[in-house]
Amino acid sequence: MKRTAITYARKSIKVRGQENERDSVLYQLNRINRYAEENGYEFIDSFSDIGYSGVLRSRPELNRMLEFLK
């Protein structure tokens, strides 16, 4: 039986070789997916905020994810 998980990523620090916000988020999601595959997780949903700072408490996809978890 696989464990289930959700993913959340947002634009964070600039990653070497990743020049824009979208690439940074895709990089994060790729890393999360690789970890999940190696550890038997199955994703049931994915959330990502592109262009939103972590300082902001209200981000569209973060809010959607929190509602999903209720």
Rank of each mutant, 00 (worst) to 15 (best):
E67L: 14
E21D: 15
Q18K: 11
E61Q: 14
V55I: 14
L26K: 08
E21S: 15
K11C: 08
G17V: 04
R31L: 09
S58F: 07
V55F: 15
N33M: 06
R64D: 04
S48R: 10
E67W: 13
R64A: 13
R59A: 09
S46V: 05
M65K: 02
F68E: 00
N30L: 02
I32G: 01
G51L: 08
D45V: 04
S24F: 00
P60C: 04
E38C: 12
A36D: 05
V15H: 12
D45A: 14
D49M: 13
F68N: 02
Y52M: 09
E38V: 04
A9F: 01
E19W: 09
S12G: 13
K11Q: 14
E42A: 15
M65T: 05
V25G: 03
L29F: 03
S48K: 10
D45L: 12
R31S: 14
D45C: 08
S58E: 10
E38L: 12
N20M: 08
Y27D: 13
R64P: 00
R22C: 03
K14I: 12
F47R: 02
N30G: 11
I32T: 00
E42D: 13
E37Y: 11
S24Y: 02
S24K: 01
R16I: 08
S58R: 14
F47A: 04
F43D: 07
D45M: 08
Q18W: 03
G40R: 03
N30F: 06
E21W: 12
Y35E: 01
E61D: 03
V55Y: 15
S48W: 11
K11Y: 09
S24D: 10
R34D: 06
R57H: 15
L56M: 15
G51E: 04
E67A: 12
R16P: 06
S12K: 09
R34M: 03
N63Q: 09
N20L: 10
A9V: 00
A9Q: 07
R31C: 13
G51T: 06
S58D: 07
L29P: 00
L62I: 08
E61L: 02
D45K: 15
L26H: 10
E38W: 09
F47C: 05
N20D: 15
L69D: 10
I50N: 02
Q28E: 11
N63D: 15
K11E: 09
N33C: 05
R64V: 05
I44K: 07
G40F: 03
E61R: 11
R22M: 08
E61V: 00
V25T: 12
S46Q: 11
Y52Q: 06
S12P: 08
E38D: 13
I44D: 02
S53V: 06
Y35F: 14
E19Y: 13
F47Q: 05
R59P: 00
G51K: 10
L29M: 06
N63S: 09
F68P: 04
V15E: 12
D49Q: 08
L69Y: 01
A9T: 00
Y52I: 01
R34N: 08
E38I: 12
N63F: 05
S53R: 05
I32S: 02
Q28I: 03
S48Q: 14
D45F: 10
R64F: 02
S58Y: 07
Y35G: 00
A36V: 07
E38G: 09
S24G: 08
R34E: 13
V15I: 15
N33R: 13
G17T: 02
L56F: 13
N30H: 11
L29Y: 00
Y41P: 02
E19A: 10
E61Y: 02
R10A: 04
Q18S: 07
E67P: 01
